[in-house]
């Protein structure tokens, strides 16, 4: 017998299963080259203590979190004040990638409350944006995984400016399901280790 929470999660997984990780597009022209180069140089300047594994926490001080229009091109990035979690995650992945690290997009489903969902829905509607990332009290979220050892990843959440841990299970603002998107990497990676969790790539996995 499925609990209500399980049913809600199943329906959210189904709803978000066709979501693909956000990417920032490039016009292939000077406009995007300039913005992209600026971003990369800025990231290197802010390497905390010189470690390429350090979190690009500067991204969140540069941009606020909120709703935005898609698609997003590189040349739009510097002048925007607000980016959503997908754009922040795409920027973080780009920061880690240009430092020479292997990265994977991470899609997550997190649990909040219906009350929060209502407020977010209204905020997005005010801007004329779709809040298709909300499913009841569950929301779709994006982050960035960095390879730190053989198949071993750490997950950076640029929206909350924190390394995500799988250890918190259930409750408010926790991750209940996750999908590591590991397509298109030179080495084929079937499973990823996120701390004690072993997670097959490209599949939604309920972790709670």
């Amino acid at each position: 017998m499925l609990s209500d929470a399980d049913k809600e999660l199943n329906s959210a997984v189904e709803k978000f299963s066709h979501f693909i990780p956000s990417i920032i597009l490039h016009h292939g022209k000077d406009c995007c080259v300039m913005a992209h180069e600026w971003f990369k140089a800025l990231d290197i300047s802010f390497l905390i203590d010189g470690s390429i594994y350090s979190a690009p926490s500067w991204i969140r001080s540069q941009w606020k979190w909120g709703g935005m229009d898609w698609p997003l091109f590189w040349c739009q990035v510097p002048d925007l004040k607000t980016l959503d979690c997908g754009a922040l995650a795409a920027l973080s992945c780009e920061a880690f990638r240009q430092r020479g690290l292997s990265v994977f997009s991470v899609q997550l489903i997190q649990r909040f409350s219906l009350h929060d969902a209502y407020h977010w829905d209204r905020k997005w509607a005010e801007k004329g944006l779709l809040s298709n990332w909300i499913s009841g009290s569950l929301v779709y979220h994006e982050a960035c995984a960095v390879l730190i050892g053989p198949n071993q990843v750490r997950v950076w959440d640029p929206t909350d400016n924190t390394w995500l841990r799988p250890s918190q299970c259930g409750g408010y603002a926790t991750t209940v399901a996750v999908r590591f998107v590991a397509e298109g990497y030179p080495a084929k990676i079937d499973v990823l280790k996120w701390e004690y969790l072993v997670i097959p790539s490209n599949t939604w996995i309920k972790i709670c």
Binding site: V33, M34, E37, W38, K40, A41, S45
Partner: peptide, 10 residues
């Protein structure tokens, strides 16, 4: 040096 690279590329 990275800023130099960025200026060159841009």
């Amino acid at each position: 040096l990275n800023w130099g690279k960025a200026i060159e590329a841009a």
